[in-house]
Design a protein around this nucleic acid. Structure first.
Length: 286
DNA sequence: AGCAACGTCTTA
DNA sequence: TAAGACGTTGCT
């Protein structure tokens, strides 16, 4: 338990939102103020319930599109607008607010602590984790609401791992290999780490065989769906995993061995640190 | 059988 | 070219 990461804190977005009442409404840094963000902290801390449903500004559009395909789409929520901001400025803004609230620590240690959480009630992913490796400190956490990693969307690890920021830090999702070299060497199913499984390879290399998530990259290690991204909002039709949980290996086209040697062995903590450094004011301004 | 999610095709 | 839709696979 660290001061920055309250492991006994909210285990769901709803609970996380309640903590917003403790946040002092102080002015932001000038650099962030200048970014003219319209959102307050309470806005960032607002949750799915608050953003679900049609937004006032969208009502006319929905009416006019009743007969179109678009009419079937879920209304655009406020959060995804920020999370998916190409510039990442929304994220920086949110990070500033959360840091003020003591909820955010952009340090490797905090990220490590958040990911190395106490076990919780096992859910779906735990079965995969059991298959994945016999033991070890990096053993995949249970997909539990009480798991520290569940807080990542609301804590330090979340922002650096946002897809919107990967490009800013020079980490192209298609080229990165973030899992530990030690883990890779130790992995009993190296195929699995490559997003390939014996079963998926077992056939005649059919392209229709499904690859499996590596379970070791940052997105794979996320415990919970964000419930805000397009994939989550559109799960029934989209049949896609949460954007922020989409395995880095699976994002790459099958057969493309685009692994950059420079990424080999880069630990998650190193990555977090790199992101923190990359996100320093100077780096962002540059 | 039901569900999650990968792969591919279509659409904007 | 990215996002969405849908068929399909793989697992429980």
């Amino acid at each position: 338990m660290s001061t920055a990461v309250d492991m006994a804190g909210p285990s769901s977005p709803d609970q996380a939102h309640s903590s917003s009442t403790k946040i002092p409404h102080e002015p932001l840094r000038p650099s962030l103020r200048r970014s003219s963000h319209p959102y307050s902290l309470s806005h960032y801390m607002s949750g799915p319930q608050e953003v679900k449903g049609p937004q006032p500004s969208e009502a006319p559009e929905q009416k006019s599109a009743q007969q179109s395909h678009k009419a079937r789409r879920a209304p655009v929520a406020v959060w995804p607008d920020m999370w998916e901001s190409p510039s990442g400025l929304h994220l920086a803004h949110a990070a500033e607010l959360l840091m003020r609230a003591g909820l955010l620590a952009l340090t490797p240690a905090a990220a490590e602590q958040a990911s190395g959480a106490q076990p919780g009630a096992p859910r779906r992913d735990s079965a995969e984790a059991k298959r994945a490796e016999g033991s070890g400190p990096e053993e995949e956490e249970d997909d539990s609401p009480g798991c520290g990693a569940d807080y990542q969307p609301y804590l330090g690890a979340w922002f650096p791992f946002s897809p919107a920021l990967f490009p800013l830090a020079g980490f192209q999702m298609g080229g990165g290999q973030w899992r530990s070299a030690g883990l890779a060497a130790d992995s009993s199913d190296g195929l699995g780490a490559e997003g390939l499984s014996p079963s998926s390879l077992g056939g005649a290399g059919s392209s229709r065989r499904k690859r499996k998530r590596c379970r070791e990259c940052v997105p794979c290690r996320r415990q919970t769906n964000c419930e805000q991204c397009s994939s989550c909002r559109n799960r029934k039709r989209g049949h896609q995993i949460c954007k922020y949980r989409k395995c880095e290996e699976l994002k790459r086209k099958p057969g493309i061995e685009g692994r950059a040697a420079g990424f080999e062995g880069l630990r998650g903590s190193d990555f977090t640190l790199g992101m923190s450094q990359e996100r320093s004011p100077g780096a962002l301004d540059g």
